[in-house]
Design a protein around this nucleic acid. Structure first.
Lengths: 236, 236
DNA sequence: AAAATTAAAAATATCGACATTTTTATATTG
DNA sequence: CAATATAAAAATGTCGATATTTTTAATTTT
């Protein structure tokens, strides 16, 4: 089973090289769900969507079924598929669970990470810094780049965590966090503070300072919740 | 979205009432994977399996895609589906991660559980006890019943945990634990000790004694790992 | 005989069509 | 006119057939 040069789907994670119609649809659907083009709770009509994504019914259904893996889509017998709903309570749950898993994973990484992990983390941090430094004039397309690099940075941070399962669950929750962030902050740019937070996380990780890392990482995750929470309250 | 009387699939969990071919195939496939009829790592040929399960290719593919949700099946582009592989390391990972999540969930339950939670737990414990008491003469069909009631007991224990995500992840890991147990202990019956363990868990939960609960539950989960570990070593 | 090429077989991925079920709109009844 | 029953529309779930890709087997070449 050599997956190095091939597209493997483990609950939520895709390493794309080869492409299929299912994977294409899956990728587009995921992006549309996370970005809010497909609204939370919305019914996903196969008949309608298959023309939109240019695939047959069976292919679309397969893509939707795979998205159930990531809890981005729900399936109900005889009643089709829906975009996963959202709620403030759900975001709270996600944030808290994510803190538990991500802190554990990061600490584990710091304790087990070898030189290669360090190198990868430095690279990811560097690429992230590059887009965050010019955060004032953040154009639309660079937002997409920031999102990608932010994911990669967090992924690199926990890459040396010895538990495949913790990494997998963490990754799913991170995707959901991102969805909430994007649904809430669509118009808001990336504030300068975020870079400072990432710096603190990076520094603590490189210093192998587990305690500090726990603290700053926890705060970092809590902040997403706080911001969305505040926005929801303000909207009332 | 009223799912009370309908079959909802959230990553890994199914509440069946209505049935579809996809759900039927899914249920059978899951059982065959957990029981070892379909061996770890085995290639799942759609052409071959569709006659075995009496469904069309698209339907089978959809069922397999849904099983990716539970990490019981892996999908690789252009190379089809495989049964999730197993390893001792994976079981170790599962056990450790499960301890983290299940202990947290149980403690949370104990702190938040209302009267209804207690009633449900008592019921589940009672049903489990009934099959465990006659564990000496455990026929094949009562093993299946025990397995079902064991799942229900553990589910009832954490039912009052406020985090949907923790419950979901815990459930997936529990299924995988069960798979390892069944793959390893196919001929071995359920030992008497297990009932004593379940009793301790139940008593601690009812007494709302979080500390004791943590301890006995941790031990309970560790034991599955130890037994399988020992079996693997002996096989050498 | 090992490596590389080619040919045949098998398997995956995909679509279009259709039966069944659910939903919506309309009509009927107390 | 509210509640219920009925009819029409829409959507889901399903299968069989087929193009494409991968795998296996046979053949050729160095």
């Amino acid at each position: 089973m050599d997956d190095i040069s091939n597209t493997e789907i483990t609950a939520g994670i895709i390493n794309s090289t080869t492409s299929t119609r299912v994977l294409d649809a899956l990728t587009q659907l995921r992006e549309d769900i996370i970005s809010g083009v497909l609204e939370p709770g919305e019914k996903l009509r196969v008949q309608h969507l298959k023309s939109k994504y240019g695939v047959g019914a069976a292919t679309l259904r397969e893509a939707l079924s795979l998205l159930v893996s990531e809890s981005l889509v729900t399936a109900t017998a005889q009643r089709g598929f829906n975009v996963a709903p959202i709620s403030l309570q759900d975001l709270k749950d996600i944030s808290e669970t994510r803190i538990m898993l991500e802190v554990q994973a990061a600490v584990d990484s710091v304790q087990n990470g070898d030189e290669d992990w360090e190198v990868q983390l430095i690279g990811a941090y560097h690429r992230l810094t590059k887009v965050e430094e010019n955060s004032t004039n953040l154009a639309e397309n660079s937002t997409a780049i920031w999102e990608q690099r932010n994911i990669e940075f967090h992924e690199a941070l926990v890459a040396a965590c010895s538990s495949r399962w913790v990494r997998q669950f963490r990754s799913i929750l991170h995707t959901h966090s991102e969805r909430y962030r994007r649904l809430s902050l669509q118009t808001v740019g990336i504030s300068r503070d975020v870079h400072e937070e990432h710096k603190q996380i990076f520094d603590a990780a490189m210093a192998r300072d587990a305690d500090t890392l726990s603290k700053v990482l926890t705060k970092h995750i809590e902040k997403t919740f706080d911001i969305v929470h505040k926005l929801v309250d303000d909207a009332k």
